[in-house]
Design a protein around this nucleic acid. Structure first.
Lengths: 196, 196
DNA sequence: TATATTTCTTGCCAAATGACAAGTCGCGGG
DNA sequence: CCCGCGACTTGTCATTTGGCAAGAAATATA
């Protein structure tokens, strides 16, 4: 039952007992496909652990088109850090792409535990640094890699997304239009066909 | 003399005495315009406080063109966090755009102080969260704002860059070519001319 | 001061990308 | 089983952006 919490809150300074304490502050919630967990303009008051399902974050660009900024898959934290921790309106919207099972924890509960459970703040520090590195890497990838390469990387790292998500959303995540991504796929097929 | 350290290490949990301790671990260094502080492929072993001058970070894109990813101005930390903290080869190169005066601290000295000076790790945690938010904001700006708007924002926030940096480098930071940026400027002039 | 070098602008053309629309495919609901 | 809808592909065309090069302007150098 608490397997997911052990996975998420795994840290040398967090005992099983600590993790139980943390787990007790979470509440199971379910969202249907298409449901919105956090809407643009609202201040986030909780974050989630995604037990099962697929979620995306997106923003609206200068043409008011939806641009996917992040995909969340099993055993990941679903969170809008800037909104939650700075208590500001979110620029991003969080939306379930499939039916989802999550564990929710309120910001208030988080704050209390953050000071009460010694290892928790250490865990949080680690999480923040990992987030920073991951975001930096994605930013650099958007510059240093071609859309084709980014597509292949996504296929490799989160294949379930290719299965469940409309092409248009994937394309926006990669920084191209659906038309372009369709053509990229075509080229890849041709290339792999030649190789075989 | 230690004014810059007070500014950088300002934090409720860091006393003047603490800051003196931190300051003592820094060594003054000077770089000439054009000098490289950290080269792509090398592992960073220090970070710097920029007392005076202008520095940029850049990467090479899929065409081997230089793309500026960040500008550092007075009273900022000059650092490649991913390389320094993950002990991995840097993707970014750090280069002085003007003659610079900096205060250098080695990673080893940093680590020792991080554990010795209680408030320092708190300061570090705050710094990481701020970095994360700033990077996220820049990532979103690259999506939600037009190049024109990003240019105006840069002019507003770091006007000294416009003065000292070749157009081509600014353009790459904004995600366009120098030709495009020149046209953007032209449009802005026309627009402001009409308004007056 | 004269000369060389770099930076910036601008026109022209090519290439890439996007918008739009038509057509195909596959799946689920009636 | 058939219809309808959403998803994907593909063609055409328009727009944007970039590459290139020439020239002007600014800056540095001798």
């Amino acid at each position: 039952m608490s397997a997911i919490f052990k996975k998420i809150y795994h840290h040398p300074l967090l005992s099983d007992q600590d993790i139980e304490t943390l787990a007790a502050a979470h509440e199971k919630v379910v969202f249907e496909k298409g449901a919105v967990l956090l809407r643009k303009g609202k201040v986030a008051n909780e974050y989630y652990i995604l037990e099962q399902g697929l979620i995306r974050a997106f923003v609206y660009d200068y043409n008011n088109s939806e641009i996917t900024t992040e995909y969340f898959t099993d055993d990941e934290l679903v969170i809008a850090p800037a909104s939650l921790f700075q208590r500001t309106p979110s620029q991003e919207t969080l939306q379930a792409l499939t039916d989802c099972t999550l564990w929710k924890i309120s910001f208030d509960a988080f704050q209390i535990l953050y000071h009460k459970v010694a290892g928790f703040s250490e865990w949080g520090r680690l999480w923040f640094t990992q987030q920073l590195f991951a975001l930096k890497q994605r930013s650099l990838d958007m510059i240093t890699e071609t859309a084709t390469h980014r597509y292949l990387k996504l296929v490799k790292e989160k294949p379930q997304i290719i299965q469940h998500v409309p092409l248009k959303q994937i394309a926006s995540y990669l920084g191209v239009t659906d038309t372009s991504l369709s053509r990229i796929r075509k080229e890849l097929l041709k290339a792999s066909g030649t190789a075989t």
